[in-house]
Design a protein around this nucleic acid. Structure first.
Lengths: 204, 204
DNA sequence: AAATATTTTAATCAGTTGATTAAAATATTT
DNA sequence: AAATATTTTAATCAACTGATTAAAATATTT
């Protein structure tokens, strides 16, 4: 048997296809994506896709798991760090999340959409529950405001970070901000969000 | 020429198809919706759909305009009312929006998604810019915080109201809340959001 | 009630889409 | 270099999808 082919190209065909799939799937969603779109984006033949990944479904599964990890993987260790204060957590989450989402602007809408069309399938595979109920961060929130369901604050934190990226197409198309102004606005929020969250946690 | 056929059924075939289209389109999105799904949901033949609406595209256009009006139509008059204070506006927006979205839970994700895949097409048809830049509410926000881009606060208000509905599939599937608990949580936010927004507007 | 117009249906079409296949091209081993 | 294994391609398939059509059923007008 011959060994795996020497990689002479910059990137292997398989990786080219995965990269194309990342782009097209996150941009258009599963249903609107045709396997031919992916092959074309990769500059390769359609049959290659099925040769390497067996099916559109299987390729999507791979990309989706990657993207879920990308979106939820960041927050878990930050929210669960026993060595940081709540304020430090807020700063870290706002900063790191905003940086990551700036480089992957349509990641949130993509994930939220695919989860809605197939909830059990993907949510069960991530330790999402921990963010919302078992984390160190939740404990710290409960200490400060035992009178309010901590879920409210988690929703607010994530919403403040994520929602601008979800609303971006509307903001840009309705002329509220171009790409540059959006980037500047988003950057301001790294400092503002921790400030705001502290404020709403004190509000009575 | 005969006059329009007497409606003996409870609802006309045309309205049955529109109602089915509302349901299926908002649930699955344009791309994942097959015209046969809509016909079946309406309990009618596929040819009827093309007979009444000419094409999937045209039927979608009708539903989409309805849904845009439903989502953005509420907020414009509230945000632009010169007779109410900012605080009254916040209370009215939180309350009315949450009620409307409770009855149309997947409206936000549907709209945001379709706008992303076709921004110019739909945004231009709504006076969305007014919410963000020209409204009375924006003026009132500027008065209180001339040092911060008012867009931040509009994003926060809308995010606090809308984001829970977008995140609901994750919350429910990850076991954070069932439908009843989600409804209760959302209801609490009617009072909490105006409180929170006032708090973040004071935060320094 | 007959004639005319409208609504509804079943059958079918053409284009698209995910997937397969067999053969050609390329790489690896002997 | 010959033999063998792997990778890539063009051609093709079957199922699906949006749309059309012609005829049947129903309603309206005369």
């Amino acid at each position: 048997m011959a060994k795996k082919k020497e990689i002479v190209e910059d990137v292997s065909a398989e990786e080219k296809l995965k990269e194309a799939a990342r782009k097209v799937f996150t941009q258009k969603g599963y249903a609107a994506t045709r396997t031919r779109d992916i092959a074309e984006e990769a500059g390769l033949n359609l049959a290659l896709l099925n040769y390497y990944f067996r099916s559109k479904e299987k390729l999507f599964e791979i990309i989706m798991m990657e993207k879920l990890q990308q979106l939820f993987g960041i927050i878990l260790p930050l929210a669960n760090d026993p060595s940081t204060s709540l304020d430090e957590k807020l700063k870290a989450i706002a900063s790191e999340y905003i940086d990551m989402l700036s480089a992957n602007e349509n990641l949130p809408l993509f994930i939220l959409n695919e989860i809605r069309s197939n909830p059990e399938r993907f949510v069960s595979k991530m330790q999402i529950a921990k963010i919302f109920s078992d984390s160190v961060m939740i404990k710290q929130i409960k200490e400060k405001r035992p009178d309010i369901n901590p879920l409210h604050f988690v929703i607010n934190i994530l919403g403040m970070v994520v929602f601008p990226f979800i609303a971006k197409p509307i903001l840009v198309t309705s002329g509220q901000a171009d790409n540059k102004a959006f980037g500047a606005l988003i950057n301001e929020r790294k400092k503002l969000i921790p400030l705001w969250v502290k404020a709403i946690m004190k509000a009575k």
